[in-house]
């Protein structure tokens, strides 16, 4: 196997481990604040998967792949444009992730104030005690 592919497999395996740990935190931890922290980690890991899909390996041995921002467009000719297109990463997952990060912030703020109201109403944030208090 190629060495770069091996390192990419290590990266993807670590991200899968992060996803499993965050899902464990969301499902099995009884405290609501810990659930919110795990939910932020879960969202960030999903965004990282979307970015890994759009990544491209280096086109040459010493020419790195470029970010999808066209710098120096004032004196542009056709060969420069061809070289840019052949070495830039995919911009579509980055646009999607840019939206998802901000929406995740809004969802987290809503959950934080919901947890605050739960604490004012029940006096605790433990899920087991809240379930006990309901009846």
């Amino acid at each position: 196997m190629d060495t770069a592919t091996y390192f990419l497999y290590i990266l993807i395996s670590s991200m899968v481990m992060n996803l499993a740990l965050a899902l464990y935190g969301v499902f099995y931890k009884p405290h609501l604040t810990k659930k919110i922290i795990s939910l932020t980690i879960l969202g960030d890991t999903a965004n990282t998967f979307a970015l890994i899909i759009g990544y491209r390996l280096w086109p040459g041995e010493t020419t790195p792949s470029r970010p999808p921002v066209l710098v120096g467009w004032t004196h542009l000719n056709k060969t420069m444009l061809q070289q840019y297109v052949s070495s830039a990463v995919d911009p579509l997952p980055q646009a999607l992730v840019l939206t998802a990060v901000v929406i995740g912030l809004a969802v987290t703020l809503f959950l934080v104030f919901l947890a605050l109201q739960i604490y004012r109403h029940y006096g605790t944030l433990d899920v087991r005690e809240i379930r006990k208090l309901r009846g």
């Binding site: 960030d44 970015l51 890994i52 970010p67 901000v102």
Partner: peptide, 14 residues
């Protein structure tokens, strides 16, 4: 992973 605009948004948020 060559996404500088994501870094610019992600650092203030996270």
């Amino acid at each position: 992973l060559m996404a500088p605009d994501i870094v610019l948004v992600y650092i203030p948020v996270a």
